[in-house]
Amino acid sequence: MKVSLKVNGADYERDVEPRVLLAYFLREDLGLTGTHVGCDTSSCGCCVVLMDGEKAVKSCTMFAVMADGHEITTIEGMKKDGKLHPMQQAFSDQHGLQCGYCTPGMMATAIAFLKHNPDPSEAEIRDALSGNMCRCTGYNNIVKAVQQAAAELSAPAAEPVAAS
């Protein structure tokens, strides 16, 4: 079956079998291996990607054909103009990753969460990430990273400094 979708800003048209899951479509058909498959049973959150920029979805629990006409953003598409997304920068600054396996899913989940709750409490962040597992157990720094990103993303854009 034909699907047309946008992934990380680029248009793709592919012929896929309906039973192909989005995670495998991204990894195997498009070669975007930054989306990780952890439990493969909808329990761990490693495979979470962004749909239409604002919804976090488990790509192991969605068929690729369901993404027809939608826009998917994976970890590979978060960087803009050679600059890390504020969430990526925050994970780097706060050491929010150890092995890195859960990181793409954590970031996608956190980005979607901040869209509807731009100024969350620590408890709200922990709740929002409660479906994502980090087996390195590095949750404290992940929460700090989301706090940093929240502050950055909700701050008014800095005025360009006038040349003197």
Binding site: S42, K55, V57, S130
Partner: peptide, 9 residues
């Protein structure tokens, strides 16, 4: 229900 990501779908 389930977890926050599951609830988005």
């Amino acid at each position: 229900v389930a977890d926050p990501v599951v609830r988005q779908m």
